[in-house]
Write a protein that binds this DNA or RNA. Sequence first.
DNA 1: TATTATTCCAAGCACATGCTTAGAAATTGA
DNA 2: TCAATTTCTAAGCATGTGCTTGGAATAATA
Lengths: 192, 192
Amino acid sequence: MPRSKTYSDDLVLEKAMNVFWVHGYEGTSVRMLEKEMGINQFSIYSSFKNKKNLFLNALRKYREFVITNRFQPLLQEGAGFAELEKFLLNSVTSKKGKEEKKGCLVVNTAGEMGEHDPDIALEINRYYDFIRNMILKVLQNALRKGELPINTDIEKQASFFLGVMQGISVAGKTMEKRQLKDFIGLALDQIR
Amino acid sequence: MPRSKTYSDDLVLEKAMNVFWVHGYEGTSVRMLEKEMGINQFSIYSSFKNKKNLFLNALRKYREFVITNRFQPLLQEGAGFAELEKFLLNSVTSKKGKEEKKGCLVVNTAGEMGEHDPDIALEINRYYDFIRNMILKVLQNALRKGELPINTDIEKQASFFLGVMQGISVAGKTMEKRQLKDFIGLALDQIR
DNA sequence: TATTATTCCAAGCACATGCTTAGAAATTGA
DNA sequence: TCAATTTCTAAGCATGTGCTTGGAATAATA
């Protein structure tokens, strides 16, 4: 009997994610959201409860988004050092010209909301736990394949890799391309 | 003839800096500022023009603050690798217990304001230019002292060091202490 | 001590914020 | 076709925002 929705929750959520990505949490108003999502405030609130909850959903969506768009090669069966290398180098080449330097939504959020909000802090931790596990698996593969010294401490290297990733998220905004490349190059030398 | 100020511009600016440091630019209201600075809105606007200009001054103040409080050892005459090492390790040990993980104001700002505001982007660049120059000098010293391989590319190493610093600013919020230490340890190995 | 320049205070301005609500529009199943 | 149930629209609510203003309080000068 009921009337059916004219929009997809998942689709408008992705649009919301992009707004938050560009403007941050506080910098994004509900008016901006309703414009970009293409639905009314009422619909936003009935679908996502409130602004913060919408943002939490956007953060989860971002994790999915990043996994399918950037981490895919690292999740393949035989992924090893070559894939790690490509992944880091992609961080610099994917910054094509006019596209805005949005950086990483999670890093931006960690900076903006810090530890102020426990729900968001939790989501940030989930994000990095996931990435860390993925890195660990790839490093294990690389070790097995003999691409790394036998006595390599995988856990330490994972921390290093993660730290470098986070550094790149900031450096992508503040460094010139040449310097960013050098940073990544030396980081890769360290792992190998 | 005129009545004299009852507050010091420099002193209230430092207080403003701390508020921005904790809550970010958008997250800080003028009402919060007048409370923490201990002066009226009128005085804020007559001394600093407007909120954004106050923030720009706070960013500059932050640079001074960081230089005198954290970079001091690196600016000394004979500073070499040992000082670089201590500096990075300080980033983790200075995170004492209850003190909030505020991270780096400049990194937080880069995340929040990104490239949206050109004036602020300029100030961010100034900050990192300063740090990069300082790192370069110390690396040069270290090279001269024979603490680094003779063929070391100082410029590349400076980019690496800066990238690691930025990584630490994020990792300090998202990693456990042990992992952060490992990250720094391997980064230092790379430089040496 | 009277004058004068300036600081301070409180109130208020116009607008933006997150969120709610009442009623019209619409689409499903009977 | 009609009733039921949900979605959509637009207006509005209380509060917060950055910023301004008019007048009282103040202190240095003459």
